[in-house]
Design a protein around this nucleic acid. Structure first.
Length: 543
RNA sequence: GCCCACGUAGCUCAGCUGGAUAGAGCAACGGACUUCUAAUCCGUAGGUCAGAGGUUCGAAUCCUCUCGUGGGUACCA
């Protein structure tokens, strides 16, 4: 619809020989300003060298002179806006398309033949996922889904490290609990993990090996059992949210297949590396960073930046058209180093999009809880899902912009009250379903001509809203904010509820109007369902 | 100190690449169920968009500074 107006406007502009490169068409907030508006005269008046209002008038007159069935009213308003009202019939004409496309309505093929890799979660297997990981997981998965809806071929990847210091400490912690459970002397290592789950792991080891390992504290069985146990746990939690990964990438492989060394050599060839104080440094300052960074410690162990560089190189080598990294705010300082290194290795930086989300503050009894996996004083993501359902969890994490801190009030989330907008949207869907159930005839047999009766303001606005859905999904590719979808759905649900309260849909006394309205309701149902499905939130037919 | 976000109603937050009168929900107050489900709707009240400059026809939105909050600033990940 917008495109059609765009064409009409462009035609007028070229006839007036005005520039065509700066055309913005918007949907005005104020309904008195019509269905669409453009500020073209205002932003181009300098270039054209005329008064905005003068330009507006010329454009409007030009459009008026020509025949078109799309525009019902067109006017220019000081200081230089052009507002148009669309023939409501043009809106209703689009409705059958929604019904026809059904569960595909909103999808597009813009990303056809493009492969995108979305890396997210990437929590090391040292403990259950926290609520913070939950934000990352749901954000990453929702973004993957947005790509899918835009026709991209998407791979979800989980990057992990099972070889570092943290994992060694984990193994030691398991050993300590193993000894404890056997009633022997034990000592929790410095900075060891204290969660209950450690004991569960130790117990499993006892079940299997008994006391045979008491003098074998460095036996890899401790670390490996822990890793296996925890990873299963993590996958189980993710599955509850409907998230599965296509790939698990082990950082260790980068060492085994020499990628790390190769990166060092390449950087060395580019003269971006030097030794100082026994460590190996990356010349960040050479590539526009504030400071140089250690990439290999004097102990010979790389810092996390080095494998990260190798990892990204690996992704490039796999030939993706786009790579998305979803990180928590704690990576803020690290990724620019990685990107600049990647760039200096000759890769295109633009192929990587780094999404940084802020942290989640958990509020309980009104005050924030400090969380640490190590101290195990966190509320696990798994617990949260069990308490408030996967739907609510998913919605809660994407309804806020990723770059604002999220206050997660446990007490409110648990309440499952009407505070939570996900119910509002789901209820709108259930309502549509219920109305449709009350309708006796066959939806497929409705004569499309009856749709002309959908002329009241609420109806026109709602149809216009439905028609925006595909654009919202396209827009999300630019913003990569799933929030755009949840906002849209809330607005649509609100329109539906309001309409429902005011107008009778199925009215036996007026069957032709009923037909038209039920047709509309069915379209609303489809759009809400598709939106929720994109977000992997259920759309109940009954509540 | 330096870097990056954020600061919008009492609370939690929307606000699209700058647009016309800044919006929801919760909380408060007043209404609406013999009706297609009231998990809903309608109305009232609530604002110096942190503050100060700047850019321009026009700023919550862009730029600069100040203040405040969070995060980062390790040879931790």
């Amino acid at each position: 619809m917008k495109n059609k107006f765009f064409d009409i406007l462009s035609a007028a502009l070229s006839e007036l020989s005005y520039p065509l490169d700066n055309i913005i068409i918007q949907i005005p907030k104020n309904p008195n300003h019509g269905d669409f508006t453009t500020n073209y005269p205002l932003i181009n008046s300098k270039k054209i060298g005329k008064n905005p209002i003068e330009i507006a008038e010329l454009i409007v007159n030009n459009i008026k002179e020509r025949e078109n069935s799309l525009i019902k009213e067109i006017e220019f308003i000081p200081p230089g806006f052009i507002n148009i009202k669309i023939n409501s019939k043009k809106f209703t004409n689009e409705l059958p398309n929604i019904i026809k496309e059904d569960s595909n309505y909103g999808k597009n093929k813009d990303g056809k033949d493009k492969r995108v890799l979305v890396e997210f979660v990437s929590a090391n297997p040292t403990g259950p996922l926290t609520i913070g990981h939950g934000r990352n997981a749901i954000l990453g998965d929702s973004i993957s889904r947005i790509f899918e809806w835009n026709g991209y071929s998407v791979e979800r990847e989980y990057y992990f490290n099972n070889a570092g210091r943290q994992m060694r400490v984990l193994g030691k912690s398991v050993y300590a609990r193993y000894m404890e459970l056997l009633g022997l002397d034990f000592q929790i290592p410095d900075g060891g993990y204290e969660g209950e789950y450690i004991k569960s792991i130790s117990k499993k080891i006892i079940d299997k090996y008994g006391k045979s390992l008491i003098d074998d504290k460095d036996n890899p069985i401790f670390k490996e059992s822990a890793e296996q146990f925890i990873f299963n746990d993590i996958k189980k939690t993710l599955k509850k949210l409907g998230i599965t990964f296509d790939l698990f990438f082990n950082e260790n492989d980068l060492y085994d297949n020499n990628s790390i060394n190769n990166v060092i050599n390449e950087l060395e060839n580019k003269n971006l590396i030097y030794k100082k104080d026994g460590a190996t440094w990356f010349k960040g300052t050479e590539v526009g960073r504030d400071t140089d960074r250690v990439i290999i410690k004097s102990t010979g162990e790389p810092t996390y930046r080095l494998p990260d560089i190798a990892y990204h190189k690996n992704k490039y080598d796999r030939g993706y058209d786009l790579m998305v990294d979803v990180f928590g705010a704690d990576h803020m300082d690290a990724y620019p180093d990685v990107l600049s290194a990647i760039k200096s290795l000759g890769f295109k930086e633009e192929k990587v999009r780094v999404l940084i989300h802020q942290f989640v503050t958990i509020l309980k009894d009104g005050s924030p809880i400090k969380m640490s996996t190590r101290k195990a004083n966190f509320i696990s993501l798994d617990n949260l899902i069990d308490e408030v359902s996967a739907d609510v969890t998913r919605f809660f994490f994407i309804m806020r912009s990723m770059n604002s801190h999220l206050n997660f009030d446990i007490d409110i989330a648990k309440e499952e009250s009407d505070i939570n907008p996900v119910f509002y949207i789901q209820y709108a869907h259930a309502r549509c379903c219920n109305i449709i159930k009350k309708y006796d005839d066959d939806l497929d047999k409705i004569d499309i001509n009856v749709l002309d009766q959908l002329t009241n303001e609420q109806e026109t606005k709602m149809i216009s809203k439905l028609l925006q859905f595909p654009n919202i999904i396209k827009k999300c590719i630019i913003t990569l904010e799933p929030q755009n979808i949840s906002n849209y759905l809330s607005e649509l649900a609100s329109m539906l509820h309001s309409y429902y309260a005011k107008e009778r849909v199925v009215d036996p006394k007026n069957s032709s109007l009923s037909d038209a309205r039920i047709y509309l309701i069915n379209a609303v149902r489809i759009v809400i369902k598709n939106g929720l499905s994109l977000l992997k939130i259920s759309a109940p037919e009954k509540m």
